[in-house]
Amino acid sequence: MSQISAKDVKDLRDTTGVGMMDCKKALEETGGDMQKAIEYLRKKGAALAAKRADKEAREGMVIIKIADDRKAGVILELNCETDFVARGDVFSGFAGALASLALEKGAASPEALLALTLDEAYGGESVDDAMKTMTGRLGEKLELKRLAFLTAPDGVVESYVHPGSQLGALVQLSTDKPEEAKALAKDLAMQVAASSPIVTDRSAVPADYIEKEMDIYRQQALGQGKPEQFVDKIVTGRLEKYYQEVVLTEQSFIKDANARVSEVLADFRKKHQAQVDVKAFVRYQLGQ
Rank of each mutant, 00 (worst) to 15 (best):
E250D: 15
K226G: 09
A115I: 04
I254G: 01
V62N: 03
I63K: 04
S109G: 08
K43G: 15
L144S: 05
A189G: 04
H162F: 12
D232Y: 06
I38H: 08
R42W: 01
K177Y: 03
A37V: 07
V192T: 02
V18W: 02
G136V: 03
V282G: 00
N79L: 06
S196Q: 09
L167S: 07
A130Y: 00
F84M: 09
H162K: 07
E143Q: 09
G123R: 00
D129E: 13
S196L: 06
Q285R: 15
L286A: 06
G93T: 07
M1S: 14
S165R: 14
I4A: 04
Y40F: 15
P153N: 12
E143Y: 05
K270T: 15
D256S: 10
S109C: 10
T236E: 12
Q3M: 13
R58V: 05
A95Q: 03
L116M: 11
V276I: 10
L27F: 11
D128I: 00
Q35M: 11
A97T: 07
V282S: 01
A50N: 12
A37Y: 01
N79V: 06
D256T: 09
D14T: 14
V282P: 00
I4P: 02
A130K: 00
D128N: 12
G168F: 02
G168Q: 04
L144A: 08
G123N: 03
G88L: 09
A280Q: 10
G164D: 15
K55Q: 12
A99M: 07
E111F: 10
A194L: 10
A50I: 03
I254Y: 05
D68F: 08
L118F: 04
Q35N: 13
Q224K: 14
A47M: 10
A108Y: 03
Q219N: 15
V231H: 03
A86G: 12
R202L: 06
M61R: 08
Q220P: 07
A50P: 02
A207Q: 15
K24P: 08
T236R: 12
G223H: 13
E140T: 08
A189I: 01
L76G: 01
I198W: 01
C23S: 10
T16G: 09
M1F: 08
E77R: 06
A97S: 11
Y209F: 14
A99K: 01
E104A: 13
G136S: 10
G164M: 13
D154G: 11
D187G: 09
A130T: 02
R42Q: 08
E77K: 07
S5Q: 09
S5P: 06
Q224L: 13
L222Y: 06
P178L: 04
A112K: 00
P110T: 04
I66L: 15
A189P: 00
V161I: 13
D277R: 11
D277Q: 13
T30G: 12
K105G: 10
T15W: 00
G139D: 05
G19S: 14
R87W: 08
E39P: 06
A6S: 15
G123K: 01
G237C: 12
A108Q: 10
K279G: 07
V247L: 11
A49F: 05
A112Q: 04
S2G: 06
A204I: 07
A95K: 01
L167A: 11
A221F: 05
G139Y: 02
V205Q: 05
